[in-house]
Structures are given as structure tokens and as C-alpha cells.
Simulated scan of single mutants.
Amino acid sequence: MAERVLLKIDGQVHEGWKAVSITMALNAICTVFELTLTEKWLDLPARRVVAAGAACELWIGNDLIVTGWVEDSDNSLDKSGHTITVRGRDKTCDLLDCAALHGTGTWKNVKLETIAADLLKPYGLTLKVEASTGEKIDYTIDPGESVMEALTKLARLKGLVLGVTPEGNPRLFSPKPVRADYGFALGDNISTINVTNSTADRFSQYILVGQRSGARASAENARAVKATAADPGMTRYRPLKIVTSEQSSQSGLQARARWEANAHLAAAQNVELTTPGWRSAKGTLFRPGGLVRVDAAYVNVDIDLMVTSVTLALSEDEYRTSLTLARPEAFSAEPAEEAKAKKKKKGQKVDPLMSIE
């Protein structure tokens, strides 16, 4: 089914795009898009102009996807017509590119929300907080770090994830898998599938060492807080020690340790697949965050997974979606489900996303 892709700029709607690429990710602070069309210039009373730097909204039908900026506008002309390629990102793109600046760059005994508000104020953005940020903290900007780097560090301290809303504001949340109204199965709606299961960046134990929040650190107590988390699927001895400069409470550092264990697991184990179209059979646009069943027994996958990134693409009149999926606990500060795994019986099938044995 054809989709209406609408780029709205200053009250004007640009559509009719012949090539489209839109990438959204659960833990990305920006959605990225690229749109291309070719118009027969001899048939047009005036050429189409899309200016770099323009504020824009990107819609797919009635679904708002991006509130941001046109960053690149390429124009070319030949005998076949006028070709325009437009690229852009959410308003949060400035947080990725620009330095974190605020007064002395140091906060003492404040909530995470206060630090975020101070950093975001010059950009006219507001942090949407969807989870508890816990106790007050101290924080100092590292020289040269971007706003996004600062916010990401703060999110990790609390075991949370940083993303973006369709309205272009940063979002702080703990992903809670919500069952989507669709799934994927070989022989039905899976065009291609690739399953990755690697042990290269997984560790048996994650040891986090940091400074005690609010303490006047001396040489003896500067590393007074310690927390550990395990990846029970890594059966050989492989410890990883992470020393942080940020001050944290014991509970905060423990959440960070569990987050590190799950983040490494998520990067090591995932499924990538492509499917025709941009929507489910019920008309739901594919977006990150949904919990879906992936039935692909031939590659030893039959499990519920969370959609972590989506690329909607159009080329040569073909609509297709590329999705990356990972274990539901991948972005959680809760212990991985593998901790509850029982020893498999002889001859029992083992899903590659559930064990490395």
C-alpha cells in the first residue's frame, strides 16, 4: 500500500517523494531521514525549493515521525528533470553536535532533572521523564563533552535510556516491552533474516567502581562505592571492571552495573530482518519498542523480542522495513532472564538468543 510521506515547512507541504529512508532507534536521541524526488522541470511552473536549515515536521500519513531541521538540501538538474535530496534530523541533533555549557559546569546535590533542564534551556528543549531518577547527585561536565554525552552518562547512572519523542524533545525512560499487534514468521512476512550471537564483548562479571555521592573524596575513600552484575550465560571467567568519575549512590551504581551487563548482552545477541511494507496487517506503523514474536525455527529462533530499531525505506516503488530486535531485558536495569535458566536436557533445542552453550 502506498504511503504519504509529508515534509512540512513553514505551512507548505512537500510530498511525492520517490526514495525514502527513515531510521528510528529506541536508544537514539535522533531520528534520521533522507528523501528524494525527481520532477520534470519543463512541466512545472516553478521549481521546488527546500532550504537547508529550515524547521520541519516529517509525517507518514497521520503519524508524526520527526520534529526537527532540514540539514542538507541537494539539487541537481539534467535533461530528465530536477532532482532534490533532503536530509534531516530531530531538534535533538544539536545535543549530539554541540558542547555542554552551563556556568561553572558543576552541580552539587541536585536531581538529574535539574541538570538536564539547565543543559537543555538554550536549545528550547524539555526532557520528558518517564521513570524515577532516584536520589540527588553531584555532576561535573567533562571538558569538551557534548550535551548528549552528558545526558547519556546521567541516564546510565540511573540505569535508564535516552531517546527522543516525535515532537523532538529528549526522552528519559526505562523500556517496558508492550505487546505489539504483529509478529514475524518465516514463510509469511519475513523477507530476510540474520541472527547474531557473539561472545566477543560479553563478560562473566561487571564490576563498577565509583565515588560516593556527596562525600568529600580523599585518596582512601575516592572509590568508596562498588557494585557488580553478572551475565550467567557467560560460563567462563571474563571480568570487566569499569571505573567511573561520576559520584553515585550504592543503588545508583548497582543499577548502572545491571545496565552494563544487559547492554553488552544486547549488543552481542540480536536479530535483523526485513519485511514488506511499513505497517502491520492492522495498519500499525512499525516503530521501536514493541514486543513481537519472531518465528524462524530454521535459524533456531522462536522467541519474543523487542524491536530496537526500524528503517522505513522506499525505492523503485517498493516499500520495505528493516528491523533490529533484541531480548526484552536488553535495556533494562533488571537482571537478565538467563539468570533463571535451567540446565537444558539432553537433545533439547536451545535458542541462540537464550544461551551461549
Rank of each mutant, 00 (worst) to 15 (best):
G183M: 04
L314V: 03
V209W: 05
T31H: 08
G252N: 04
T311P: 13
P276Q: 07
S76R: 06
R4F: 08
C93V: 14
A131E: 14
A51D: 04
R320I: 13
K91D: 01
K345D: 00
D118S: 12
K226Q: 11
M24W: 01
T140A: 12
D43C: 01
N262H: 11
N75H: 09
Q12M: 11
G210M: 10
S249V: 05
S213L: 02
E338K: 00
N189E: 05
A326W: 02
T275L: 04
M1F: 06
M148N: 10
R256H: 07
E329F: 06
G210S: 11
R238I: 04
G61K: 03
V164I: 06
A215C: 05
I137T: 07
N262D: 03
G283E: 04
A255K: 14
V271Y: 12
T104W: 02
K79Q: 13
D351K: 00
S73Q: 05
N189A: 08
P288I: 01
A46H: 12
G233L: 00
R89D: 06
I207N: 08
A52D: 08
T274R: 15
L160D: 09
A131K: 02
P177L: 11
V178A: 13
F286D: 13
A261E: 05
L323H: 11
R48D: 03
I207P: 03
D317V: 10
N300C: 05
I141T: 15
E71I: 15
T321M: 09
V310P: 15
L273W: 11
L6I: 10
T106C: 13
V20F: 08
A180Y: 09
I190F: 12
D188W: 02
R89F: 12
V243A: 12
L127N: 13
T106Q: 14
V299L: 05
I193E: 05
L172N: 04
Q250T: 08
G347T: 03
L253Y: 10
V161H: 14
A215E: 15
K8M: 14
P175D: 11
T38G: 11
S76G: 13
E220P: 13
Y182R: 09
F184Y: 13
L44I: 01
P45V: 06
